[in-house]
Amino acid sequence: MTENLSSDVQLADWQALALAIEGALKKVMVGQDKAIRLLCIATFARGHVILEGNIGVGKTTLLRALARTLGGGYERIEGTVDLMPSDLVYYTYVDADGKPQVAPGPLLKHGEALATFFFNEVNRARPQMHSLMLRVMAERSVSAFNREYRFPHLQVFADRNRVEREETFEIPAAARDRFLMEIEIEPPADPGLLRDLMVDPRFHDTEQLLDEVATAIVDYRELNGVSVAIQRNIHTSDAIQQYALNLCRATSDPVALGIRLPDTDMARLILAGVSPRGMSYLLRAARVAAWLDGHESVLPEDVHEVFLAVVAHRVFFRPAYELRRGELAKELTEQIMQSIATP
């Protein structure tokens, strides 16, 4: 592997940098080790991410901290029902001389330097917005002012809270499939950590907390190259490829594996399983997971590490079961992993 690295990127050095990012995030986000690891994997797999969780669990803080470690342009927009695509592209104002002016919106402001775009409460925005984001995520470009703007280093993070469902627009299946991962952010399970969050004044001032995070630990402009090098150099054996394929195919027909979920008619649960894009994303993320763990080849535990985050939002349930998505998807993926043998 080392010979390849010397011709591409020094992956070992980059692994240390990735772990440094992880360490920096863990300092400000306690009890979120798994979510932080998944965020790092998504960053080095160059995939977009949806964060889902209750209110006040630190989703925004986590993303802002990650944006600091990556450097580059960072923009954030709040999803509201009256938000229109033009609001992302430009805004108008009257300047000091009283003349009307047009200025680039949050999407265009940084040009190619835009590295992190955070769409808060994405499910509050209208489908027109989802459509624009779909193109930005898929093509990393947008057309405006009679020209095309490109964002080669862009990584989109979207967030939705699971508490409120009223006046929201569910992200369409096509847009959901563009996200590499859907990461669940839960409050820390450890009561001691929860008490620290409550008592320690360090966690009370978010701005001050974020100041602790080192800025630009990596050069965001090199992330695409590193990602390509990881994908090229981390080996996937025939056995692991077949294993990953079997896992993905099982999401379409879990009944064949004898999987039963409580209070669920399994024959009427699944509308569609993981798409071919999802299958490629699974192995892409698993390679990065293996690299972060110091493996030269992808192992089953690397696949397991990312399986839920990559696959859960790509399994489409019938409407009757959509409201139980979180619970069902977790149980389904868990049982699939327990049922499919490798080798």
Partner: peptide
């Protein structure tokens, strides 16, 4: 491996 899995009732990995 199949025998270990059957004994455990689920798939057993190194992990």
């Amino acid at each position: 491996h199949a025998a270990v899995n059957a004994t455990a009732g689920h798939v057993v990995f190194a992990g």
